Simulated assay, not measured.
Amino acid sequence: MNSGSNVTVVIPCFNDGEYIMEAVNSVLNQTLKPEKIIIVDDGSDTHTKHILGGINDDSVEVVYQDNSGVCKARNVAIDLAKTDYILTLDADDYFEPTFIEKAVAILSQDSHVGIVGCFYRRLVSGKIQNEVVKPLGGGVSNFLVKNNGLGCSLFRKKCWEEVSGYDENMRKGYEDWDFWISILKNGWQMHIKEEPLFLYRKSKSSRDENAFLNHDVELRDYLFKKHRQVFMDNFEAFASQIIYSNSKLKQTQLKIKNSIDYRLGNLILRPFRLVKHIFKSQK
Rank of each mutant, 00 (worst) to 15 (best):
E175T: 08
D92L: 12
R263I: 13
N2D: 12
S59E: 06
V24F: 00
N6R: 04
L28N: 02
D41L: 06
W180T: 13
I11D: 03
N29F: 09
I268D: 09
I39R: 01
T88V: 11
L264V: 15
N147A: 10
S59F: 07
I39Y: 01
M170Y: 10
N246W: 15
V116A: 02
L267V: 13
N25G: 08
Q229F: 06
G43R: 02
S111F: 10
D208W: 09
A91H: 03
G43T: 03
H191P: 10
G165S: 08
V27D: 01
P34C: 06
N246R: 13
M232S: 11
R121E: 06
D41M: 05
E209V: 13
L199D: 09
N214C: 07
E161M: 11
I100C: 03
Q189A: 02
G117H: 01
N25R: 04
T46P: 00
I183E: 00
P271E: 02
K255Y: 02
E236Q: 15
P135I: 12
I106K: 08
N148H: 11
N214D: 07
R74Y: 07
N142M: 11
S44A: 04
S259R: 03
G265A: 14
K72E: 13
L267G: 12
N56E: 14
Y200I: 09
D208T: 12
K257C: 13
V132F: 04
A239R: 14
C118I: 08
M170K: 10
M170L: 15
V145P: 00
K276Q: 15
G53H: 02
P196G: 05
W180N: 14
E209C: 02
K276M: 11
G149D: 07
V113D: 00
P196D: 05
A103C: 04
N6L: 09
I106R: 06
D221A: 14
K82D: 14
L123D: 13
I192V: 10
D16S: 12
I128H: 03
L80C: 10
Q30N: 05
V275W: 05
A91Q: 00
G17M: 05
G151Q: 04
K146Y: 14
K82E: 15
N186K: 15
F238A: 11
G114M: 04
K280Y: 12
N214V: 04
S164M: 11
L80Y: 12
S206V: 09
Y120K: 01
E96I: 09
D66Q: 14
S182R: 15
D167W: 06
K102Y: 02
M21Y: 10
L184M: 02
K127P: 01
Q30A: 09
I51T: 11
I256S: 07
Y174G: 01
F198Q: 05
I192D: 01
E96C: 10
V116M: 01
A105P: 03
F143E: 04
G151S: 08
L107Y: 01
V116N: 00
R121Y: 09
V163Q: 01
K172F: 12
L197I: 05
V140M: 04
L254C: 09
F99S: 02
S203N: 12
D42W: 03
F143I: 06
N169T: 15
G4R: 05
V7W: 03
S182V: 10
